[in-house]
């Protein structure tokens, strides 16, 4: 279910690291909690964030959720597909439903995140 090579945050974001960059999205668990996604408020390219700051918001019909950056970085690309088809996040949260790409400021911050097995354990904990 949850790709082995991703990093996961407690706020249900995932990161797929490629060199000094990382693709970011929200997890399958998060998209299920939100329900049908109707809008993603994509940030401007060039926006810089510290870890745990709000990157963007994702909206379903009756809720709005902040998407936090698990690590510090700079937004270098956003998924333009989401403007027309935000439901990609529901359909393929770990693939086509990616939200943006970050240039990482400090790769060591990744050590603070979970790997797939830990994240799955974390989810089990939430369900109880």
């Amino acid at each position: 279910m949850y790709p082995e090579n991703f990093y996961y945050s407690q706020d249900h974001e995932w990161l797929k690291v490629e060199g000094e960059e990382a693709v970011l999205g929200i997890t399958d668990f998060a998209q299920k909690q939100l329900g049908d996604i109707i809008y993603v408020d994509l940030p401007v390219v060039g926006k810089t964030v510290e870890a745990h700051q709000t990157l963007t918001t994702v909206e379903s019909v009756k809720s709005v959720s902040d998407v936090y950056s698990p690590v510090a970085g700079e937004v270098i690309e956003v998924n333009q597909q989401l403007i027309q088809t935000p439901e990609l996040i529901n359909r393929d949260p770990h693939g086509e439903g990616w939200i943006l790409k970050l240039r990482l400021k400090d790769k060591s911050e990744l050590n603070n995140l979970m790997r797939a097995a830990d994240y799955e354990k974390y989810l089990e904990g939430l369900e109880h």
């Binding site: 109707i38 809008y39 909206e59 379903s60 019909v61 009756k62 809720s63 709005v64």
Partner: peptide
Amino acid sequence: LSTREQHIRREK
């Protein structure tokens, strides 16, 4: 488009 409104977004 109710997510703009106070009953969902409250202070925002």
